[in-house]
Amino acid sequence: MTSKMVIRQPQPVMDAQGSDRWGSGICDCCQDIPECCFAFWCCPCFACITTKRYGQCVCLPLLDIFGIIPPINMSMRVSMRQRYGIKDTMCRDCLYATCCASCSWCQMSREMSERKIPIVLISAKNT
């Protein structure tokens, strides 16, 4: 008799709790004026801090310096939309990342502060 071992890694599952829209608009800087000023005057530092809070490499946003469309800003927006179940378009993400970088980082920071949804592994069990 042979035994067969099956190993499956648990996959993270996000349960969308809340709205399917951004919690604040791209230009809602009045919701957190100190944060908005920090993002405006020192966007690279603010982007690095926001990226670290999101759980990614702290130096990742520095790669945005080398392109016309900031790839890290755009990918973070897309990732955040996926994580929080926000319905929007990649075209709009591209537009905001390119034309309104500091506003885009502020919006993502406000979204993380507002939602505070931890990543929870569901149905992770030993078999």
Results as ranks from 00 to 15, higher is better:
M74T: 06
S104V: 00
D88K: 01
Q17S: 03
L60Y: 11
V78D: 02
C43H: 13
I26M: 13
M74F: 14
V13E: 11
W22G: 02
M5Y: 15
M74E: 13
P71D: 07
C42Q: 14
M112L: 11
G67E: 09
D20T: 04
Y54S: 06
E114D: 10
R92F: 14
T89A: 08
D20W: 04
S109W: 03
V120Q: 07
C36R: 04
S75G: 00
R77L: 04
C27I: 04
P44I: 01
I7A: 08
P34W: 00
P70R: 12
W41E: 14
I65T: 14
I33E: 09
R21V: 01
C59D: 06
S75E: 10
Q17I: 05
M112T: 12
M112Y: 02
S75V: 03
E35Y: 06
K4Q: 07
S113Q: 09
Q31H: 10
N73G: 14
F40G: 08
S75M: 10
C29T: 07
S3Q: 13
L63R: 12
M1A: 09
I86D: 00
C48K: 02
C103D: 10
I68Y: 04
A101S: 15
G67P: 04
R92A: 14
D88P: 02
V58W: 15
R81N: 03
A16P: 14
S3H: 13
F66P: 04
D88H: 05
W105D: 06
I119K: 00
C99V: 15
S104N: 03
R110H: 09
A39M: 14
Q11R: 05
R83D: 02
I26N: 05
T89G: 01
T98W: 10
A16G: 11
S109M: 08
W22T: 09
C106G: 05
D88C: 03
I7G: 15
R110L: 12
R8S: 11
M74W: 10
R110I: 05
G23S: 08
D28K: 07
R92N: 11
R83Y: 07
D15G: 09
F66G: 11
M1Y: 07
D15V: 10
Y84G: 01
I119T: 01
T51A: 15
